[in-house]
Structure formats: structure tokens, C-alpha cells
Write a protein that binds this DNA or RNA. Sequence first.
DNA 1: CCGTCCCGCCATTCG
DNA 2: CGAATGGCGGGACGG
Length: 527
Amino acid sequence: MGPLTTPKKGVEGHCVDPWTPTSNLKILISAASPDIRNREKELTVEEAAEEYSKQDAEEVEEGERMTSRKDKSLGLLCHKFLERFEDFPDPHKDNDISLDDVASELNVERRRIYDIMNVLESLHMVSRSAKNHYTWHGRTKLSQTLFVLKKVGEEQGYHRQMRQLRLRLAEEEERRSGGGAEAQDKENREGSKELFFVELPGVEFRAASVNSRKDKSLRVMSQKFVMLFLVARPRVVSLDIAAQILIGEDQGEASLDKNKFKTKVRRLYDIANVLRSLKLIEKVHVTEERGRKPAFEWVGPEEFTQIKDTEVKAVENTKVLTSRSSKENCAKNLFSNKRFTRHPSLMKLAKSIEEDRRKINSAPSSPAKSAAGDVSVDFPNKMAQLAAICKLQLDHEASGPKPSEPARTPIPLTPATPATPVTPLIPVLLQQQQAVGGGAYAVYVPPPQLRAAARPQPTSLAVRSMTFDSPTALKRPGAEETAESSPSKAQRRETSFRDVSPKLGEILQARLKSRGVHLPSRAAPRA
DNA sequence: CCGTCCCGCCATTCG
DNA sequence: CGAATGGCGGGACGG
């Protein structure tokens, strides 16, 4: 009986893993920015050490094991994994990863490896090459990926959603929220058009892997999660907010919240753990009107600028093709680098659509009235954007190769398909996943659901005084005024890339000590 | 008690 | 059909 219980701790007497408590220590250290901030680091070390010695004392019986739950955390596991690869591998080397090898070397069930791979894959740090194999890319594509994710995130209106949500949650708590009064504000589900996996030029889902599972959870959830960080004002995101947003997008409305929410959060923890191992985020605490709650702060690269030139051109093109509908997808350096070869994506697109169409026929889930005619009202925006990008890339390509980046491995252009007659870019047939990747990136948009009634929503209000918890700094009393906590991003730890100059335009009350505090303990705050 | 999140059953897909 | 993938959530652990 009881076949559903998690095995009890340390009963099984077989091969004990070789991990030592120091491994945990290591991850903690690496979790903190290794460079600067020695003070914090040391403190962390001390605390950790203390922690362990204590544990050591307890687990005296059997001079081994101490299989503390943490010793098997995804984070540690991921850290172990990352340790064996370079951040910027030589693309010519053999960067193959064997699932079996990794699983055995790390001493874990394959299931766990999948978890890690999925999120790494979402950042294009690896890509599945074949059945039990992945290819390691490290951080070579990270910048580019983040750039795209941020862009997509903006297009999705995530920043807006977050703002609203924060506000709503804050009010909810504040105003006793005794009962009722919850529901009719479902009208938030606007902007977002539910996107799926975002691909990159050189790393489409190879290995003839499914196209149907492509939109499944973890990978996509991970990307969305990252998008939230890249778009959030103060670069802080709490799990409940993230979950809230990510849920809203998934399955059509009627989400049986509560449980759904719980599960979502559980997943986010997994993702957060590997992102932490990657040192892209850090755990922090935000103090709201009603107590503090855990959250994560982005500590990874901020401005991952791609190529500089053609920026203007890019912007203009986009605007034109995008038509009136998007007045707000601001002018940002639009394009990613030209790494782009032929337009294999078009072929792929065709193939993909072909494939999907097949599935669509058997998937009656679409609530849309499949108005073949007026597909244009809803998500023309995104489509147009993509088209624009595609065109841009082509133009760029035509106007001569860009001598900036190293020669990218030209996409092998599968000779399998001779001359794809399919007219490129016909995603106009809406429905699920239509791969559009003018070599830039491919986004999968879902079926239409709401009119393009992009209600701007009064931006007047904003987060209820949100403060980053700090041992010494207590919640500011009078703090509450409405106003987006301004970007106090003054001294972000020097990102390995470049720090963004605070877009200080909003002169609002801006205190909020951006600096997460590790481990809950009176850690002497730096000076 | 509650925030985390490990473990592994078992549904899906792939091959 | 068996193997590869990876949802999913019970309930254990740590504070």
C-alpha cells in the first residue's frame, strides 16, 4: 500500500552519492556574484558553513549521507551540470551532450535531466540534436536570445499585465477583501496572444522532434518567465504574479485556478532554480503593504544590444508594415544580428504549417469562429511584425553581408525539399503555431480571442510601495503614493555586459533599495 | 504552519 | 510495441 508516497529519507542503503556538503556551499557561493560584493559573499560562506557544521553534528550516525534535501535540489544538480561545460564553447568542437552520460555522472534519474535541459533549451543554451543527445551552446546565444525574449515580452504587453496585477493584488489585500468582489475584472486578458516557443535562427527544433509538444509547458513557461524579468520595471518578479500571468495565457479562460495556480508555482520554482544556477536571477524579498514575500530579481545581462546599424531602418520598416495598430511597440534597436543565411525558415515554415494543419483538423478545441476572412483584426499586429522582421532580414541580407559577427554556421538547408512551392508566410490561416521566422526568431501565436481592443488602462497608478527587503531598512511608513516604483537601478552589479543607464524620466519617489539580500539573517549590509 | 520542491507515477510521443 | 519525454501533484523537508 501507499505506492504514492515519496520514499522516506535515507532508508535505501545503496550507492550514496559522492556529493559533499561543500558542493552545496559552492553553489551558494557561486549564486552570489563572485566578483564584487565580497562582503556579502563572505557572509554567505560563513553562514553556510555554520549551517553545515551544525548538520554535521547531528548526522553523526553513519559518517556519510546527510542527504539533506538540498543536496538533491535541481539547482545544485544544474550547477553540477554547468560545471562541466564552458560558457562559450568552441562551436567547432564536439559539444555533444549525452543524456545517459550526464544522468549517470550526476547520479540522477533522467527525469531530472529533462527538467534542466528544458529550461536551458528555452534559453538556447542547448538544443536537442538527436534522441539522447543535446548540443551545448553555452552562452553564445544567450544575449541574442534575451534580446528576442525581451522584445516578444514587450509585444505581449507583459509589462502592462504585471503592473496591473501588482496593483490589483496590492489593493486586494489592503482593502480587507472581506468577501466577494472578485471576478468581473477578467477583462484583463487583453494584449496577450498566447505565444509559444520562441526559436532562434540556428537552433530550431531539430531532430524531427515534435511540433506539437513544442508549445508544451516548461520550455515555454521558462521563456515567458524570463520575459517577465526582462520587461518588469524593477527587475523583480514574484512567483505568484508570474504564475498569474502565465496562467491567464494558457488554456482558455475558465482556468480552474487554485490548483492550477499551485501547480504553476511549483513549476516556476523548478525554473527559477536553474535560472539561479545560471546566475540570471537571485532570490530576494519584496515588502509590500502586507508583509514581505519572496521574489526573484534579474541579475543577468541587461542590455544585450545586437548590431547597431540598421537600427533606424529596422524601426521604420516595422512601423510601416505593422500598420497603425502598434503605436507603442517603441523604437528600439529592432534587429538582431544578421546571422542569417538563406531563408530556410521559410521552408521550415511551410513544412511546419503543413504539419500543423493536419493536427488542427483534429483539434476542435478552437473556440474561434474560424473566420477565414477577417483574421486581420486580432493579431495582425504580431504577424505584421514578424513579416516586417522577415522582410528586414531579407533586405539586409541582400544589401550585402554584415561583417560583424563570425561566420555563422550556415543552416544546412535540407536538400530534402527541392523547391518548396509553398508560398511563404501564410500564417494568415491563424490557428495554432505557425512558425514564422524570418531568420530572426519564430513565435507561435495562438488563435484569436479578443479584438484588438488594446485598452491602455490608466497607467496612473502603479505598484503599492514596493521595497526590497533589507535587514536594516524597514518599510517606509508614509510610502504608498501611487507611482511605479521608479527604476532605482543605479548600481546594479556591473553586469557582464553593460548596464543600462537608468531611464530616469519618472521623477517619482524612488527609494527602494534594489539589492536583494541573501539568506534571511542579519547580514551586515554593505557600508 | 507554510514556503519549497523532490520524487516518480504514468500519459504522450517518438522511433 | 517499447523507449524517450516530460506533465503533474502528493506529500516530505526545512525553517
